[in-house]
Design a protein around this nucleic acid. Structure first.
Lengths: 194, 194, 194, 194
DNA sequence: TATGAATGAGGATTCATTCAT
DNA sequence: GATGAATGAATCCTCATTCAT
């Protein structure tokens, strides 16, 4: 009963890995078939087309990311800054744990290969994070600017340090990670004194 | 005598526009030929392969961006914060003026379609900006962290507001732009509490 | 179960015929596809590239020739001259029966289109004939010279009369064929004057 | 005044060398232009088309070969066997001196790339050799068979030993060369005693 | 004559998708 | 569901030839 789910997951993981390494279009269905050990015809039982497979990968990552960063019950009670740091670190840890997923998001989120309809879906998906941001603004903890700006700023702040870590140009220390988090916090909150 | 340069530029501009609209791989040489009015064979006189054409587009943008953001003589004398704002705004204005160039950089800089050798080249190219960042750090104006982190942070701060503006989700006001610049400055200059 | 073999054979025969009539390079995969009734893509299922198809044709002929000229059990007991004539006539009959195969061998065996690795293979393949030649030399029936010289001489003697017959310049009589065989034998067995 | 002739010769030699190394069709006019240092357009001043260039190479070799093997005045007086050996050795020496010319003849004489009209021409060209062969037959020195058979036999006997020498499989000694000549003579002349 | 940029038809090859088993 | 051979449109690229300079 779990077989089909596993096979679908296998396909998603294999595709993700090939997409990230070679680019989506340079990855042929035959290649995915070969690497995953699933016959070409069988892939088409699970995904109607290559496009649907790409979307599948996109949604799969989005969905899983959502599960990982959602606040648990005991976390909801934390104060805003604590939850802010927690959210950021959860995102960070998730992407570091699954580098391919980060690469995929970072490369294809704005590419023409991802239909706009999916991006709409993603927006809805980020609602929790959105609510969190609006809570910060209304509590006058976060600066008063457009929530979308803050959302993107958050993602890009994460992306900055993760890109560096994955590029592996030099060792990224925990210090640098916490510095980046601090930079993000500093940039989004009011300075109390001159 | 300027003819060939013009033709090459035409090809670069046409390619850029198609690459950004449809994706690099979905853009065929035949399409570029048709839209640019240059025969396929002629494209191959100027660029040995599609790959070289892609690289050409990448380098062309990089080069031109460099010219636009370089400090002029009378700007060198400005104090650090002024030059910081100037540099950021130059980048912002450049990308807003040439949205396709931003889209191209933003989508393909880290894609497998751009060979690593080119990224090396880009790194050397950004040397000026790099020197500027290091000046800030050594003068204790910018926080003491890895210059590469600051460089990427700068690019991503620009990217954040430009993405929003180009996505045209809602009007981006000058206020939001200056807020973003201010966020960037704040994040890079905060004082650690003693 | 024999289907795929048949299809591969069809492709080989069609290719052979086109290669011989128009030259290998002037024969396009599209032409082979059309004449054989096999889709272009399907050809590439059986042969990874045009080059491999060419090699396939070469090896196919070589292999079949080998089967035809091998001595049967009751032939091994014949004396040397009888086996010599038999071998030569088998070669002659084979090539006359399959003129395209002769044309192919004669035109492309030494062309740059056939990789040297294949020629190595062919050499190994001719081992039987080689052994036969060496038997003749060691029995002092054939003149004492390099076996390779004799091997090529044999092939070229065959080629001479077949070329004429296929060029159809004039009727080639059985008499001429036996004369050519006799010439070959004479040239390889003459007695040096003491 | 000799310039154009030289340039034309350069082109012929360059083409010959490329044709032999890579095959005629894989050799592009651009390649010939590059290797010879003659602009593409200029090649077309000397040869109306690639086909004419190929024919030019063919005829150039044929012509030069003719000059080299023609009997000089003092050679005409030699007896038949002496002239026979002389002719054969002239052919041998010529091809060994110009291996590419041999390779070209050997590969393309019967290829579809050489139009039949040229072969007709070649036949006329070989008239001298033809006359010589007929002299031998009518004098009852050469065996009484079709002169064309003897002509081809002669060429193939030469080809045998030259192929081996050029293939460089092993050292070809003078002894082997004279053996091959002797084989040729033995095969074409009557045996006086049983 | 000499040049080489420009042309575009034609060639080899790939690949998403289908379908009979 | 699973398979993978078969398909042919579409892609990148080559190249003989022309022509303006």
């Amino acid at each position: 009963m779990l077989k089909p789910i596993t096979k679908k997951m296998d396909l998603l993981e294999t595709s993700l890995s090939l997409f990230v390494d070679q680019g989506i279009q340079k990855t042929s269905m035959a290649q995915i078939s070969k690497k995953s050990g699933v016959a070409v015809g069988t892939i088409y039982h699970h995904f109607k087309s290559k496009e649907e497979l790409i979307e599948g990968v996109y949604l799969y990552i989005l969905d899983d990311l959502g599960k990982h960063i959602a606040f648990k019950e005991d976390e909801i009670v934390l104060d805003f800054k604590e939850r802010f740091s927690l959210l950021w670190m959860k995102g960070f840890n998730y992407y570091i744990k699954y580098p391919n997923r980060f690469r995929f998001h970072d490369t294809y989120s704005y590419s023409p290969l991802i239909p706009n309809s999916l991006r709409e879906y993603a927006r809805a998906f980020y609602q929790t994070a959105f609510d969190f941001v609006e809570e910060g603004i209304s509590k006058k903890i976060l600066i008063d600017t457009h929530p979308v700006l803050i959302m993107r700023w958050l993602y890009n702040s994460l992306a900055t340090i993760i890109q560096i870590k994955l590029d592996n140009e030099f060792g990224v220390t925990d210090k640098m990670v916490s510095t980046t988090l601090e930079m993000t916090w500093q940039s989004l909150t009011y300075k109390t004194e001159e």
